[in-house]
Amino acid sequence: MADFFLGHYAYWFTIILLCIGLYGILFKKNLIKKTIGLAILQISVVLYFVSVASKWDATVPVLDPNIPVDQVANYLNPLPHTLMLTAIVVGVATLGVAFTLLIAVYNRYETLDEEELIDKIQ
């Protein structure tokens, strides 16, 4: 049971964070809040990948001459780390675009509250 918990709690927390992000997207009326929810959602997935990359008793994926590479278990899996570097940058780009659009929306309607926006559009 303890093993099961240790092996899975990281996933559960990821999912909880994911749902906090989804909560922000679904329930918050303010568009900046929605964006914050989006950022949380994205980072939680990054967290998932990073947490599956880990191995007990392994070192960071930078070659240490004292630790042999042919024992794979000595080093953390570098692949998810690489993927997540990409994912983080993608996330930042998305946020940048979201901010750009937010400013454009605010210039047009002088508000970022979803209900007021819908009122003003109609």
């Binding site: 990281a10 996933y11 994911l18 679904l26």
Partner: peptide, 21 residues
């Protein structure tokens, strides 16, 4: 949202144990 979280948590419990080499 709750349903989604429940399904995901249930499914994630089926994933391989974390950190096993």
């Amino acid at each position: 949202l709750v349903l989604f979280a429940a399904v995901l948590i249930y499914a994630a419990s089926d994933l391989p144990y974390r950190g096993e080499p």
